[in-house]
């Protein structure tokens, strides 16, 4: 038999020898391996797409929640004169509009009054502008008045009043005196108050209040006695 040529020191001969020795993959076996591979690949690709969609959805929700939550928190912490304060006020107005008349609305008005009292306390310790302080006090008076005008005596409203009183008591002087006077006035007026309108902070000039104030007022509060403009412009707080 003519055996294989041993003189293989030639690239072409080596190529032929190697290629000839290679075990080929049959078409059937190639398809069989392909099925095994692609079953996993296709499943992974499907899950990968689902993961991408899920990640995008989570990212969108996270971003939205962060933005909205951040704004809401920032707005909730805002004080009269802050850019976000109007958001806080609008949010309160919207809440009042959707609440049914009655105890829920009264309780929420007390909640708003507590917020105004706390704002005034923070402004007082923070050395806020005098005109802003007077305007904030106006808002407090209007809100407190509205709260008392709509409240019947129930456990819930009594508790809401108690929380308001706590806020007033914890305010620093001279704010506490002004707040206490506003609460007493509103409480003594009882439920005969009409709807009370108030102007949201930042929309009014604040000069009306300060302009009506007598700088030499001897109230001892340090702020003088502001007028309460129950027909003020802007947002409405009404029981």
């Amino acid at each position: 038999m003519d055996r294989f040529d041993p003189d293989i020191d030639d690239l072409d001969a080596a190529r032929d020898a190697v290629l000839g020795s290679v075990v080929r993959l049959s078409a059937d076996r190639k398809r069989a391996i392909r099925s095994r591979v692609m079953s996993t690949v296709t499943r992974d690709a499907m899950f990968a797409r689902a993961r991408v969609v899920f990640r995008h959805a989570v990212a969108a929700v996270t971003v939205t929640a962060t933005l909205l939550g951040g704004v809401s928190y920032a707005a909730a912490r805002s004080l009269p004169g802050d850019p976000l304060y109007s958001i806080k006020r609008v949010s309160e107005e919207l809440t009042l509009q959707v609440l049914p008349d009655g105890q829920l609305q009264s309780r929420f008005l007390f909640t708003i009054a507590v917020r105004r009292a706390n704002e005034i306390a923070r402004m007082s310790t923070g050395g806020a502008d005098r005109a802003l302080m007077l305007r904030a006090l106006e808002q407090f008076r209007a809100t407190t008045s509205a709260a008392y005008s709509g409240s019947g005596s129930t456990d819930e409203t009594d508790a809401a009043e108690a929380r308001l009183q706590e806020s007033v008591n914890s305010a620093p002087q001279p704010a506490r005196t002004q707040l206490q006077k506003a609460v007493e006035d509103a409480g003594s007026a009882g439920s005969g108050h009409p709807s009370v309108e108030s102007s949201p902070e930042g929309e009014g000039s604040g000069s009306e209040a300060s302009g009506q104030e007598d700088p030499s007022d001897g109230s001892g509060s340090g702020w003088g006695e502001p007028s309460v403009d129950a027909t003020g412009q802007g947002g409405t707080i009404r029981p």
């Binding site: 290679v22 692609m38 296709t42």
Partner: peptide, 24 residues
């Protein structure tokens, strides 16, 4: 980018060479 069909075509292109190498 996660395209399974594209990867299938790569398999078609390289499967025989890989098998030949592995089989040896």
């Amino acid at each position: 980018a996660g395209d399974a069909r594209a990867f299938g075509k790569l398999y078609d292109e390289f499967a025989e060479r890989v098998y030949a190498f592995v089989r040896g």
